[in-house]
Design a protein around this nucleic acid. Structure first.
Lengths: 221, 221
DNA sequence: ATGCCTTTGTGCATGCGTTCACAAGAGGTA
DNA sequence: TACCTCTTGTGAACGCATGCACAAAGGCAT
C-alpha cells in the first residue's frame, strides 16, 4: 500500500532493530513471528510494530503472524541492503582506527574499502589491511572504489572541510562522529553520533535522580 | 520557573549542543548571545532555543540576549557537570580500547578510571595507563572508585549480563554500544549507540534517492 | 524623561508519533 | 460447512514537539 518513499523517520529508525530481531528468530528455526513476539524482542509496543510494518506493504497473515524470511527480505529491500555500500573512514585517530578494526561494519554489508588522513604520519600506514591514503586523494579514491558512505572521525575543527570534500567526491551519505553541525546539501543524509553528548544527556537523568533524593531528604528535615 | 526535573527529553538532548556552542562563543570573547545566533550555531530554530532555555529558568535579557557564562553555568548545573562522573568501560575489544584511548571523555568531565574484560588475555594489560581488571571484580571496582557511569563495549551476547553486573555494582547510568535491548531498572537511564544501525538508517535515505532517480528515469522512458 | 529598537518569553495552532481498541480476515477443527 | 480462535490492519484519540507570531520588557540614544 504505502510507497517505499513514504516511510516515517521514526519507523525507519526502528527497522534495523526489527531486522536484528528477525535474524535472531530465524536462527532459532522459527518461520513465522507475531507482532507481539517481535515487539518483545525489539523492546517496543506491538501496535507500533504492526503499524511500522504496514508501511512496508502488507506481509502479515491474520491469525498467524509474519513470515520471518519474507519480512527480513522486505526490510532489507527498504534499507537498500541488497547491495554492498563501500565505506571510507576519514580521520585515523583513535576513533578512526578503532572503527577500521571494528568488524561490525563489514559483516553488515558496509565493507570499509578506504582509510584517509591528512597527516603524513598516518598516510602510508597499513591498518586492518588497508593503506591509509591522503585527504587530497579523497575524490579519486571515492570515485574509483565507488564509495557511497563516508564516516567522519576527525576532530571537530576539520569536520566541515572533510564533509565538503566527501560531498564533492560524490559520497551519498555521511556518518559523523565530530561534535559539529555539518552544512551539507539536502540530498546527502547525515547521521551524527556524539559520544560526549550521550554522556552529558545521561548526566541529566543521573543528576535528576540525585536532586530528587536530596529533595525528599530536605522535606523530611 | 520550571523545575529542573521537568525538562522535556527533546530539550535535554539539545542542551549539550547549546553548551558546545556557548563554549565556542565564549572563546571568541563574546559575553552575550541572542537566541538567533545560538540557534544558528546549534543548527536549530530560534524559537526552539528560547523555549528550551525557558525550562532552565529565565536568564535572558530582552533586547540584549543571554549572558553566555551564566547560561553555560546553568546548563552545566542541569546536566550535572559540576562534579566529575567516573566511568568504567567493560569490554576491551577494538571499540573498548578505542574508547579508552579517546580523549573526548576525560576532557568533558567523564574520566575513565577503570577498564574491565572477561578474557584472561586482556586482564592485566595496561591500556592508556589503566590496568584491565576482571569482570568478576566489577562490583569491588565500582564501589571503590565511586564509578557512576558504565560503558558497555562488549559483543551483544554478553551485554545483558554485563548490564546486570553494572546495575548490581551500583552504577547510576549506562551507555551501551551493544546491539541489544537491555532490561534495566527504571532508575538507571540507558543510552544506546548502535553503529551498524546508523549505517542501515542511512541506507534507507540513500536507497530512496536512487529509487526516486530511477523512477523519474522510468517515467521519461 | 521619552521613544525607538531589539530580543525575549509564550500562547496557539499544526503535525508527527504513539497507543488503544476493535472490526475484519485467515486458518484449523468438528 | 459452520464455528471458533488467533492475529493483523487501522481508525481515532491523545500527547509531545515544533514553529509562528506577537505582546511584554529591557536598554540606549537623544
Amino acid at each position: 500500500m504505502a510507497d517505499v518513499r513514504d516511510i516515517p523517520d521514526a519507523t525507519v529508525s526502528r527497522l534495523p532493530v526489527y531486522r536484528r530481531s528477525l535474524v535472531q528468530i530465524i536462527s532459532t528455526g522459527e518461520s513465522t513471528i507475531s507482532s507481539a513476539d517481535l515487539a518483545d524482542l525489539a523492546g517496543v509496543n506491538a501496535a507500533k510494530v504492526r503499524k511500522d510494518l504496514s508501511y512496508l506493504g502488507t506481509y502479515g497473515v491474520r491469525g498467524v503472524g509474519y513470515d520471518a524470511e519474507l519480512l527480513l527480505a522486505q526490510i532489507d529491500g527498504v534499507l537498500g541492503l541488497g547491495t554492498e555500500a563501500p565505506v571510507v573512514i576519514v580521520g585515523m585517530g583513535n576513533l578512526g582506527q578503532a572503527l577500521a578494526h571494528y568488524g561490525g561494519f563489514q559483516s553488515k554489508g558496509f565493507p570499509i574499502v578506504a582509510l584517509v588522513d591528512s597527516s603524513m604520519d598516518k598516510v602510508g600506514q597499513v591498518i586492518d589491511g588497508i593503506v591509509v591514503s591522503h585527504l587530497d586523494d579523497l575524490e579519486h579514491t571515492v570515485r574509483e572504489r565507488e564509495i557511497s558512505v563516508g564516516i567522519i572521525a576527525t576532530p571537530g575543527g576539520a569536520a566541515q572541510e572533510v564533509s565538503n570534500a566527501l560531498v564533492a567526491a560524490g559520497v551519498r551519505s555521511i556518518l559523523t562522529f565530530a561534535p559539529t553541525i555539518l552544512q551539507v546539501p539536502d540530498s546527502v543524509p547525515v547521521r551524527k553520533v556524539d559520544l560526549a553528548t550521550e554522556l552529558q544527556i545521561l548526566g541529566y537523568y543521573r543528576h535528576r535522580e540525585v536532586t530528587e533524593t536530596t529533595d525528599s531528604t530536605d522535606r523530611t528535615a
